[in-house]
């Protein structure tokens, strides 16, 4: 149920901008299905090509043949395929700065992979995996904030962390007492809270940075 139709977007620039914004996930999905891989950054070349193709599709759509999305899917797919073909023909001619950038990116990603691998091993010791965390992590953003904040505070308590690594579980009763948290909340999200505590205790800086927005956003709130 789009608030703005393709026809409106065609004639009004403001509506077009809103329409394109609303269709960004659609572009991501379509491009990703053509390339067979996920778009990794907003600067992905294929993603830009897809956005451009969407813009063109708005102009070309006359509303008589099919739904806009069906039409736009074809336009985007063809445009991305064309781009990929050209890229293949051209081969890779990297400049010095491209090479440097690639090296920097790679070293970042090696650090990241090492951090995740180490974190994975820790989780295994506790008897669960990231896949398990999908089901037990708080679904609501406020609950996640609360759990992340709690995990962070737990990580600052040496006794708690010693207990956690020794007993491989949270000292729920003490956490409830010290942080005045509800027992039910701690129980319900204990794996998630424990994971967060480990992230902060082990100083997984890249992962910390990754989820830092949640906490940073939280700091502006009353506490």
């Amino acid at each position: 149920m789009d608030s703005i139709s393709a026809k409106e977007a065609k004639i009004d620039p403001v509506s077009r901008e809103i329409f394109i914004k609303e269709h960004i996930p659609f572009v991501i999905y379509t491009v990703s299905s053509v390339t067979g891989r996920y778009i990794s950054t907003e600067n992905d070349m294929e993603y830009s090509i897809g956005l451009e193709a969407l813009n063109n599709a708005i102009d070309a759509y006359d509303g008589s043949t099919s739904k806009f999305e069906t039409f736009a899917t074809t336009v985007i797919k063809n445009r991305v395929i064309d781009f990929l073909r050209k890229e293949n023909r051209k081969g890779y001619q990297l400049s010095e700065s491209d090479v440097m950038e690639a090296i920097m990116d790679e070293s970042d990603s090696v650090d990241m992979r090492m951090e995740i691998a180490e974190f994975t091993e820790h989780l295994k010791k506790f008897g669960f995996t990231f896949d398990d965390l999908v089901d037990v992590s708080p679904k609501h953003v406020n609950s996640r904030k609360r759990a992340i904040r709690l995990g962070m505070r737990i990580s600052e308590n040496e006794n708690f962390m010693t207990y956690i690594y020794k007993e491989l579980k949270l000292p729920v009763s003490n956490i409830v007492k010290l942080f005045k948290e509800s027992r039910r909340f701690v129980y319900l999200h204990n794996k998630y809270i424990l994971s967060i505590a480990v992230i902060f205790d082990k100083e997984y800086s890249i992962i910390k940075e990754w989820i830092g927005d949640v906490i940073r956003g939280d700091e502006y709130e009353s506490q």
Partner: peptide, 22 residues
């Protein structure tokens, strides 16, 4: 924001890589 999701497996996936998914 600290949420975990399961997504389809696609080519060129690497641990630690950022992906945009729908």
């Amino acid at each position: 924001d600290g949420h975990f999701n399961r997504i389809k497996r696609k080519d060129s996936m690497r641990i630690g890589a950022d992906v945009i998914y729908t």
